[in-house]
Design a binder for these strands. Structure first.
Length: 190
DNA sequence: GTAACGATTTCCT
DNA sequence: GGAAATCGTTACT
């Protein structure tokens, strides 16, 4: 199976558009000579400065979040409750916005994923969460700061896209004021 | 150096 | 549906 890597300009669009555009495309990880491919089914936009739920709210900058201020197309991984979350830096340099990959469906390298995840790919709970998919794809903090444009981890173009993604309210961020009502979470329209 | 918090997952009731 | 687990990063003394 060959998956065409999406070029750099793809990432240089608004965070919302990027979040929608990612749905239906492939998340690809070249790991130890094996190709792991998952179809992206769920994403979430984090609008940095305006978004209280985001680590870069108010242009806050720390060691961990500085990658958000770099050029779009970078990999931003974040450790949470012993789990690793995967983000795609969007917009443009100096604009700390990113898209969180929240869910995938295994496509290629399934046996390897099952081994990494320790669960059957038949299970609907296999990779339907931010921490689960990073485990299934073998993604860790090692990926922090890499680029989707020329690294072992990248987004692959899927010729046959599905219908328009559905926007929903976000979840899991109850303590972030009004930001939790923003419809910035996108799921595949089935 | 120490304390508090969190973009989650999983298990229990 | 609700609570505990669990640990790196952040913020504060």
């Amino acid at each position: 199976m060959s998956v065409e890597r999406i070029p750099a300009h793809f990432y240089a669009q608004s965070t919302i558009d990027l979040a929608k555009a990612l749905i239906g495309n492939y998340l690809v990880h070249f790991l130890n000579g094996e190709l792991l491919v998952g179809r992206i089914t769920e994403t979430e936009a984090y609008l940095g400065v305006l978004d209280r739920a985001c680590h870069s709210y108010g242009r806050k900058q720390t060691k961990r979040t500085r990658i958000l201020y770099e050029d779009p197309g970078h990999v931003y991984t974040y450790t949470m409750h012993t789990h690793c979350l995967l983000n795609v830096v969007a917009e443009r340099s100096g604009q700390p916005e990113a898209v969180l990959i929240r869910g995938i469906e295994p496509v290629c390298g399934i046996e390897k994923m099952e081994s990494l995840r320790g669960k059957s790919a038949q299970d609907k709970q296999f990779a339907n969460g931010p921490g689960k998919l990073t485990q299934a794809m073998g993604i860790s903090m090692n990926a922090y700061g890499e680029s989707f444009i020329d690294g072992p981890l990248y987004i692959g173009y899927n010729g046959q896209k599905n219908g328009a993604p559905v926007a929903t309210r976000r979840i899991g961020i109850e303590n972030t004021g009004q930001a939790k009502y923003f419809p910035f979470r996108f799921i595949e329209n089935k």
